[in-house]
């Protein structure tokens, strides 16, 4: 809950795209998606695939990265902030996160892409490949977290 604890101490401001006044947290519809976020996510997905991640490997590695950056996954965070997040909400919840959380994820994904591209990953055994990719992304997440304010 690293991000969440920090976020709760922040004063409300326009900067954090609070559209509905008087609400502590933005609702699912009030946050704006950050420009470039989808591209960063897509590029990272491609980098994972190029390095040999299978479907589950990619999802696991993505979860590790998000958890390192935010203290929990984007899905969990969306649920914490909006108790009414349903599966539908979850599908869209990367757009519903507070701006600083989205920024952290964007920065982390860009870093993770370059780190991964510069890492030698053995492609002999699928489980091993997945683990190495996850380890690389976990490390990128840890490094990114160091210069985020939470």
């Amino acid at each position: 809950m690293a991000f969440l604890n920090w976020w709760k101490t922040q004063p409300e401001s326009e900067d954090y795209s609070l559209e509905v006044k008087g609400k502590l947290f933005p609702t699912a519809t009030s946050s704006q998606p950050l420009a470039g976020a989808d591209t960063a996510r897509k590029d990272l997905g491609r980098a994972m695939h190029d390095k040999g991640a299978d479907m589950r490997g990619a999802m696991d590695a993505n979860h590790a990265l998000e958890t390192e950056i935010l203290g929990n996954s984007a899905y969990e965070l969306a649920r914490e902030l909006n108790s009414d997040v349903t599966e539908r909400g979850a599908a869209m919840s990367h757009r519903a996160l507070p701006k600083p959380a989205q920024e952290g994820l964007l920065a982390g994904r860009i870093r993770a892409k370059y780190d991964l591209q510069g890492t030698e990953i053995a492609q002999d055994d699928q489980t091993e490949t997945n683990q190495q990719i996850e380890a690389s992304m976990r490390q990128s997440g840890r490094e990114t977290r160091k210069w985020l304010p939470w």
């Binding site: 999802m59 899905y75 599966e87």
Partner: peptide, 13 residues
């Protein structure tokens, strides 16, 4: 399917 939804993926991938 639920894992895909929960790992919050971007629409193109």
């Amino acid at each position: 399917a639920l894992s895909i939804v929960r790992s919050v993926l971007e629409p193109v991938s």
